[in-house]
Nucleic acid binder design. Structure first.
Lengths: 199, 199
DNA sequence: TGTACATCAGTGAACGCGCGTTCACTGATGTAC
DNA sequence: TGTACATCAGTGAACGCGCGTTCACTGATGTAC
């Protein structure tokens, strides 16, 4: 693996770059994507706005980095949860997704909420979305190997169903629609995961 | 019913007010809530920005009007679809919700997508959300009167489940997550509605 | 070890844009006598 | 029927704010001889 130049300057550069990403995330997490502001980040770093262009190509590029890193993080979370007995594995992955979403609602909404108008995610996002989908799909396939649900189309449909049910609960929960409704999201979520296992 | 003053001035006033609402909607529909701009509306009407304050209290008030009218419209749509045989009625309502969402994705997302940061919907929104929920709930109760699913808590949970499954499909569909995934949203949606009927 | 040079982080001024909102006002329109 | 008055839609200037982005530049830091 090629190690990039690691002099003191490169070191400093990486550190500031990390701070930029960190501040960008805290903007998104506290007030959504629309709050992402290069000028605000610069001032929080104690520098003037143009200096930020040493670390960021443009606002759109920064946004793309956030989106991709969120996808990557979720993919890793899902992959890390993919272990154990088949049924428990599906449940484990689903619970990991919910925990990931609740840990940072705006990060989840950045990926699966209302699309940012005029912004088109890069092709890599699609690949990462598949990396998130795959462990769920595999877990469900293992669960029913040689039993009721046939493979192929029907198996794919089942994974999609799991995904939409998971999002159905999370999307409404994160948007606050259960607070006025006497719903226990946790139980509802668990039941929805079970419903797909029982399919 | 008290008829409001209907002289030529009131007439004109109502007409312009309607145009303001119409332009506001076309902004939201074409680029989401964040595109809602009083100045832009004024200029599209051929007037200067301050003149708009004859018709609108503030941007927030206009937004509230949009949100409430979207809720009202959906509630009416759902109520209008609540007829026919029990199973067909549930399906009819669900299909009406999907048609309503597809007719104007941003209007659906205004209600159920990522919340507008810093904006709090008025209490009336909660009442209207219940008006949307109620016909679904009634239809499901009629469907299983005296059969498997007991009333009360379990019946409520089932309606919630229907709602989250509907939203799971619609939310991801409207955000464009199926376009790279070889999913037929219409079939998926129909299957999800069926899954609750079979519960 | 010391000096000359290249690198590059950060500045300051500026551009052009958009936003919501206020204020004192003009002038046309409708209304009351 | 005509005139005086009140109503009110819309203007123009302005405030203060925020945004992304460019440009020529200063000055500190690291590097090569």
């Amino acid at each position: 693996m090629a190690v990039p130049p690691a002099g003191p300057r490169a070191r400093y550069r990486e550190q500031v770059t990390a701070e930029v990403r960190g501040l960008a995330w805290s903007q998104v997490e506290s007030a959504g994507v629309s709050a992402l502001s290069l000028k605000a980040i610069a001032h929080q770093l104690g520098m003037t706005a143009p200096a930020l262009y040493r670390y960021v190509g443009s606002r759109d590029e920064l946004l793309t980095e956030l989106v991709l890193s969120a996808y990557r993080d979720l993919a890793e979370t899902v992959e890390a949860a993919a272990s154990g007995e088949p049924a428990a594995r599906v449940r484990g992955i689903a619970d990991a997704i919910r925990a990931w979403a609740l840990a940072s609602p705006q990060r989840y909404l950045l990926l699966y909420g209302t699309p940012v108008p005029g912004y088109q995610a890069p092709a890599e996002a699609t690949e990462l979305a598949q990396r998130i989908f795959a462990p769920l799909h595999t877990a469900l396939e293992v669960l029913t190997a040689g039993s009721r649900t046939p493979a192929g189309r029907a198996g794919f449909d089942r994974t999609v169903r799991l995904w939409t049910r998971v999002h159905g609960v999370l999307g409404l929960e994160l948007a606050g629609h259960f607070t006025t409704m006497d719903v226990e999201p946790e139980r509802l979520f668990a039941d929805e995961v079970t419903s797909v296992l029982d399919d």
